[in-house]
C-alpha cells in the first residue's frame, strides 16, 4: 500500500500549441490539485526545455516531492530526459512517469477541445493514481568477462574472432570439424572478386 503522506507533483506541458491548441491546460492543472497526494501542480510552455526542467527540479527540492508526473508527449520521446532531470536532484529515475497527452490525445482529437480535455484529465488522473504505487528501481551493473566465445570457424567466425583478438580480447574459437574454413574453403573461386576462397 502507498504511504498516505506521499507528495506528488504534476507538471503539465503546453508544448507550444501542440497540446495547448487542443487541450485546456489550466483545467488539467487545476483538476490535478484536487487529487489526493498531489501537493503541487503547474504548467510550462515547454516542459522539456531547460526552464521547464528547472521548474521540476526546484519543486522537487522545495515541495519535497516523492513522485513526479509530467503530462506531455510520449514517454518514448522524453522519458529519458525527465528520468535524468529528476535523478540530477537525487530522485530515483523510476519515480517520474509521463502521461502522454500529445501523441495519444491533443494530436488525434484536434478540433474537439472538450473531449480532448476530458481525455487529458483522465490520462493525468490515471498516472497520478499509478504514481502512488511507483517504487524506486535499481539499474544494477554487473562486470563483463573480457573474453568471447565464437562458435563456428567458417569465414564469419574467423572474421569475428580476428577482429576481437586484434582489439586485444581473448577469443575462444570452437569449430566442430578438424579444420577451420567451413563451407567457403570448398569453393573454387568466390564472387565478386573471382579469386581463391582460401
Amino acid at each position: 500500500m502507498p504511504k498516505d503522506d506521499l507528495k506528488i507533483g504534476v507538471f503539465v506541458c503546453e508544448c507550444g500549441t501542440n497540446i495547448a491548441g487542443s487541450v485546456d491546460i489550466d483545467t488539467v492543472v487545476e483538476d490535478a490539485k484536487k487529487l489526493g497526494n498531489v501537493v503541487y501542480s503547474t504548467k510550462n510552455r515547454y516542459m522539456c526545455s531547460e526552464p521547464g526542467q528547472a521548474e521540476i527540479k526546484k519543486a522537487i527540492k522545495e515541495e519535497k516531492l516523492d513522485r513526479v508526473i509530467v503530462a506531455a508527449c510520449s514517454p518514448r520521446m522524453h522519458e529519458p530526459t525527465f528520468r535524468e532531470c529528476v535523478a540530477s536532484v537525487g530522485m530515483n529515475p523510476y519515480l517520474v512517469d509521463m502521461a502522454n497527452i500529445r501523441e495519444q490525445c491533443s494530436w488525434v482529437h484536434m478540433g474537439n477541445r472538450e473531449a480532448a480535455t476530458t481525455k487529458a484529465k483522465d490520462i493525468m488522473k490515471a498516472y497520478v493514481a499509478r504514481a502512488r504505487y511507483l517504487q524506486p528501481q535499481d539499474e544494477k551493473e554487473i562486470p563483463v568477462e573480457k573474453a568471447t566465445l565464437v562458435i563456428g570457424g567458417g569465414i564469419a567466425g574467423m572474421q569475428s574472432a580476428l577482429d576481437l583478438a586484434d582489439a586485444g580480447y581473448q577469443v575462444y574459437l570452437v569449430e566442430k570439424e578438424p579444420s577451420l574454413g567451413g563451407l567457403m574453403s570448398k569453393l573454387a573461386k568466390t564472387y565478386p572478386t573471382m579469386d581463391c576462397a582460401i
Binding site: L149, I151, G153, M158, A161, L162, L164, A165, D166, G168, Y169, Q170, V171, Y172, L173, V174, E175, K176, E177, P178, S179, L180, G181, S185, I198
Partner: peptide
C-alpha cells in the same frame, strides 16, 4: 585461416563441441 591459427589471443579448438553454456 593462418592468421586465426597463430593469433596469440585466439584459443583455437577444432574438432570440438560446445557442451554447455
Amino acid at each position: 585461416m593462418m592468421d586465426v591459427g597463430r593469433h596469440p589471443k585466439i584459443k583455437l579448438l577444432t574438432n570440438s563441441k560446445v557442451e554447455s553454456i
